[in-house]
Design a binder for these strands. Sequence first.
DNA 1: AAAGTTCTTGTCAACTTGTTCAAATATGCT
DNA 2: AGCATATTTGAACAAGTTGACAAGAACTTT
Lengths: 201, 201
Amino acid sequence: MAAEAEFADHGFDGVSVRQIALRADVPVALINYHYGSKEGLYRAIFEMRAPMIIDQRMAGLRLAEMEPDQERKVEMIVKAVLVPNLHMRSTEKNSSYARILAREVADPKSHHRKVIGEFFDPVAYRVTEALHKAMPDRTIEEIHWGYQAMLGVMVYTMADTGRISRLSAGRCDPEDEMTTSTHLVALMKAALLYGRVPKKD
Amino acid sequence: MAAEAEFADHGFDGVSVRQIALRADVPVALINYHYGSKEGLYRAIFEMRAPMIIDQRMAGLRLAEMEPDQERKVEMIVKAVLVPNLHMRSTEKNSSYARILAREVADPKSHHRKVIGEFFDPVAYRVTEALHKAMPDRTIEEIHWGYQAMLGVMVYTMADTGRISRLSAGRCDPEDEMTTSTHLVALMKAALLYGRVPKKD
DNA sequence: AAAGTTCTTGTCAACTTGTTCAAATATGCT
DNA sequence: AGCATATTTGAACAAGTTGACAAGAACTTT
């Protein structure tokens, strides 16, 4: 799908239906015929790609639930959330979708388009549930802020602007899926396990 | 500046100069006269606001450098990075700029990439430097990924899409600056202090 | 007060935008 | 085959886009 690449590069408002049609080498009207509208096309991308990532995350969660050791369990939950997305990002065919997803999650205007909530909220609930079960001593707030943190790190890395590579003089490269995952998982695992807010006396 | 609010809500491509002019109750042509173009206006926002946030971060870093205790030092660095932005977000007048910044940092097609690099890279170097000095046993990669994580969490929270509030049934609210900062600082402090990648044997 | 400069304004032309329409083509079914 | 439905197409549409212009208003400086 050519639309993915265009949306990924310029955002929903940054690209016109004509640009997409041109790139896909089809008449403009075809898009409206098949998807109803520009937004329909946009949604179709999610409807096609979302299940894949969601399934992987769910599968990771099921594995994590079987792990008895707390520390490992948390690590597996973190991995279940981060790894599928980071992997998708480094896959040539899916990298566009990864950037669209990152953009959409970070876009306040996406609230109107809905789509994130529809597709990803259910799995989000599963994650927070699993986290709370793994660390029952945490408050609900701690769990949710922890999840928020995981998502933020993930999205920011998925949307990579080339900044970390520039700042680190090329030593850190988000394209390197293995190293990236290792670092981010280690960081977020520690954040979740050891990041406690000082309780008010 | 009315332009801030519009840009924040709809993004650079999502809003027209006319909408901005209408909201600001000025003729359209005025904007082009003063800022040359739509992009000029956009850039002007950053040039006006960026120094403020940078100064605060630098000041926080200087304070952190004086702290002898390692754990506290890292915490102070984290605070120096996160708190100014989170505070700005919850300030009525500046919340728009915070959302623009969040959007911009996550946008691969930054309209003024040079401005971001120009303004924010120097302070970024200072942060990673300070982190490395506080934790000399870490690899450069660990330091940079840690910084990346901090930024991701911050940006994602600043761009708040209302998701965490929805998922947590209203129990977590990014508008509540105090609680938000407390949680995020605790998380990222732990991530930096205890998040080590398993070294290959 | 006069002249020069800067700022403000309504209007304009050239162009894109997303979407729709009737006509043309392809496909499936009996 | 012939008919009915589905798809594809180029052109057209109304609405909105940006940036530019000349003409006027409001300051500064002489």
